[in-house]
Write a protein that binds this DNA or RNA. Sequence first.
DNA 1: TTGAAAGCGTTACCAC
DNA 2: GTGGTAACGCTTTCAA
Lengths: 347, 347
Amino acid sequence: MSNGVNLKELSQRLNLSQTTVSRALNGYPEVSEETRKRVTEMADKLGYAPNSQARRLATGRAMAIGHVIPRSIHEMMNPIFLEFIAGAGETYSRHGYDMIISVVDDAKEEDAYRQIASRKKADGVIIHGPANDERRHRLLKELNLPFVVHGRIPGAEEETSWIDMNNRRAFERATNLLLDLGHTRIALLNGLEHMDFANRRRRGFEEALAARGLTPDPALMRSADMTEPYGCDNAMEMLKSDNPPTAFLISSMISAIGVARAVGQCGLKTGRDVSIITHDDALSFLPNSGEVPIFTCTRSSVRYAGEKAAELLLNMISNPASKPASLHLDAELIIGQSTGPAPAAPK
Amino acid sequence: MSNGVNLKELSQRLNLSQTTVSRALNGYPEVSEETRKRVTEMADKLGYAPNSQARRLATGRAMAIGHVIPRSIHEMMNPIFLEFIAGAGETYSRHGYDMIISVVDDAKEEDAYRQIASRKKADGVIIHGPANDERRHRLLKELNLPFVVHGRIPGAEEETSWIDMNNRRAFERATNLLLDLGHTRIALLNGLEHMDFANRRRRGFEEALAARGLTPDPALMRSADMTEPYGCDNAMEMLKSDNPPTAFLISSMISAIGVARAVGQCGLKTGRDVSIITHDDALSFLPNSGEVPIFTCTRSSVRYAGEKAAELLLNMISNPASKPASLHLDAELIIGQSTGPAPAAPK
DNA sequence: TTGAAAGCGTTACCAC
DNA sequence: GTGGTAACGCTTTCAA
């Protein structure tokens, strides 16, 4: 039974016009309460639901938001990306929008956006992982496709809508915390610095050092995909060097776990011999909570960012004339078990 | 410029009928090569692309595959799920299908499927994370919505299409490897055993023990969400007990990393004092490769599973009369650095 | 090989 | 408050 009834059949069963039935179902005010009741009841009974393609065609709105994921982004942002998507997805559902995700070869990214625009697949898109030399926003403006950036596009902050955490300030505060604890040899294990977020984090780190008259040691700064082995291997190398760091500032929990592994393998103790602060995106499968979290961290929920980004975008779409709007989230600095005073003597 | 031309305008510019233009563009054989050439050139020039809603309405196919993600699944399967999605997404793109993802409250899951069917939002769906008492497949059959299961539905193996790895056998082999190394006290840190995959893994473990006349010790068996702390906390507890295990068999890399952390914190060495075998889903951000991988593991690419599941489903859709088809993947057993002979004396 | 016209299932405009 | 009818932009049947 379930499958089938369309508007025409439904209206025939009711001896009403399609117009009236449509209006009743879509909550138009001019239809009498009595008919509305009759209509909704019959619709329920027959299991009527409007065909979304037909509705989209008639209204001219796709009622969908697109997310284009080039493989390369996916590789490195994998878990973070999903958490963001989950947040955004909930907002979309709540507002009756679909989320459509296109996984494409890097070379076909631009093509994917063009298709979304020309075939009218979505009413807007989210830009993920903006780079220092970002250009997607130009294309999207040209295509007249509303968008929100997760992160910020350097130089285009005013003219685009975005949601971002304060990466620079978060890493500045984290660095200051380590400095206050007496650490002076601090290693930075950053994400890929051609990405805007990582770039800002490095600046926060460097500025905090500079403010105390310290210059960063290039030997203690790394930038790469934030995998677990990346953390472990680099930490290992540094810890075994002649002049090892006493603290690590790390861009991702996953790499931080790797660093902790290296610390253990060197026979050292995290929080006593070596301090660690990591950024924590609050991923559900890597909980770092509890009374005293394992890792001292700068924390900002990427899932929440997803929810908000979606809201921003849906607003833009229903309000096409509105000015760009943005949300700047502050990361929390949370003290966990992985930080402590710098060891007295260089060991 | 970019935005705009539709079929009508395009055909007018060409002094052809919409019919012919449509046929030319869709590769119908009866149109002359000359006109086809004219048409495609003009289409390129004007940047024509068919409106997907209109085409969907006309053809009656949504050209989209749905993935319904209840929050609870998402929480626990997070990274694995995304990797699967990435694989599936590539296949969809290649075949001109969209991927639409619905993130919904657990209570609204059934509703989401009903909507997909009644509103014709997708031509098929993928069932993620089947449970021991799975019921979604019944609903989907009733709704007449083609589907493929990632995993297996106990008791419905014959009547459904699925792709799964051989969980039972993988864990049996892993257990045998540990037994061969002389381990007899082997701990199992499993995923949630109300899920089919975890259930099968436990059986593989138990059967391997039984085959050597050993009975599993309930004190060494855990089942929960596969987070990092889950691995660490449980391993810690067991290692500190009176009769600690000498080896761990773990359902996820993430938890395995937690176990390794616990081993380190107890002053023990992985691979010498304590052996670890983990299942490895080959997640990009948790590489466990290299000449000698860090962890000895059973490995099966969940991304590949995604690609194949998508192919299976697209086949079903274009071939509605076909019988259920399935793919049973064997996990590789790969020797890494985390296993070694059982320590001579109980320490 | 090409074209006219009838759908596909809605929404929305304009009368009544 | 309700209904007739024309879009929406494409595919597809039937003729020519």
